[in-house]
């Protein structure tokens, strides 16, 4: 009763995603301890924290590749704790995992088609055309094997692929990983552009803390699987003392 009331409440706020007291991990090993956070419409929320604190685990649990042990994951008023990744993609959550993951044996065009696997042929084609407008680099290489793209281009492709289903929530795990500084700026600028143009909410995990804070509205800092801080991104960006503390 209380639970369903809460979902109705979540539907009335402008929260896209609401997570409450989430516990999760691998096998017997618990990684996340009572993580709570929320993402609002059109908002970018950054997740930062030291290596191994559970950032990727959090995104994997939300998208459904690993099961949530306890707690609540609410997406637009639906409890999605037990949803499969395929169900979540249909609902409007897409996820680009860590390490510029593309289907390297498939062509660029085929990667994009796979992103829209559940769409109709017609929708898939029109979405691909729309998204390619945002990524002129890819448009020129549609028939090329994705494994032959440069690191930056692969990251752009991963980003384009998860945009194909018109998600309401985009989850990005370290999109700048392994990129040269110039390319990092480029990808961050692209993420900001996507957010302002399409209004999609974004949950982004990043190691490049200053850059991601400049991009985000709010920030959630994890430490050993617990939320150490959840607040305004710009404020934290100016507080170097606090930042240092969070990474100790």
């Amino acid at each position: 009763m209380l639970k369903s009331l809460r979902h109705i409440f979540n539907r009335c706020t402008n929260n896209v995603l609401t997570i409450e007291r989430l516990k999760s991990g691998y096998g017997k090993k618990q990684v996340l301890f009572d993580v709570s956070l929320d993402v609002k419409e059109r908002e970018i929320v950054a997740i930062i924290g030291p290596n191994g604190c559970g950032k990727s685990t959090l995104l994997k649990t939300i998208c459904g590749v690993i099961p949530a042990w306890k707690g609540d994951i609410d997406f637009n008023g639906h409890r999605i704790n037990n949803a499969t990744p395929a169900q979540n993609v249909c609902r409007g959550i897409t996820f680009a995992p860590q390490g510029s993951r593309v289907f390297d044996e498939l062509s660029v065009a085929e990667n994009l088609e796979i992103g829209g696997f559940h769409l109709s042929e017609k929708q898939r084609r029109s979405r691909t055309d729309e998204i390619l407008q945002l990524f002129p680099v890819l448009e020129r290489r549609l028939q090329q094997e994705a494994g032959r793209l440069s690191g930056g281009e692969q990251q752009m492709l991963a980003l384009a692929r998860v945009l194909i289903p018109s998600p309401k929530l985009l989850m990005l795990d370290e999109p700048s990983l392994g990129l040269a500084p110039g390319l990092v700026e480029e990808i961050f600028a692209k993420i900001a552009e996507i957010n302002s143009q399409t209004g999609v909410s974004i949950l982004i995990v990043e190691q490049r803390v200053r850059a991601v804070l400049a991009l985000s509205h709010r920030v959630c800092s994890l430490k050993l699987g617990k939320v150490a801080l959840f607040g305004n991104a710009a404020e934290l960006g100016e507080d170097s003392e606090k930042l240092k503390q969070l990474f100790l």
């Binding site: 499969t84 990744p85 395929a86 249909c90 593309v102 044996e105 085929e110 088609e113 796979i114 042929e121």
Partner: peptide, 23 residues
């Protein structure tokens, strides 16, 4: 065909295919 491509995607990277919403 999209099914043929999905098949190749699963063969290429099953985890990523799963995340991309391929059943």
């Amino acid at each position: 065909s999209i099914m043929g491509k999905a098949l190749r995607a699963v063969a290429n990277d099953p985890v990523l295919a799963n995340i991309s919403g391929i059943d």
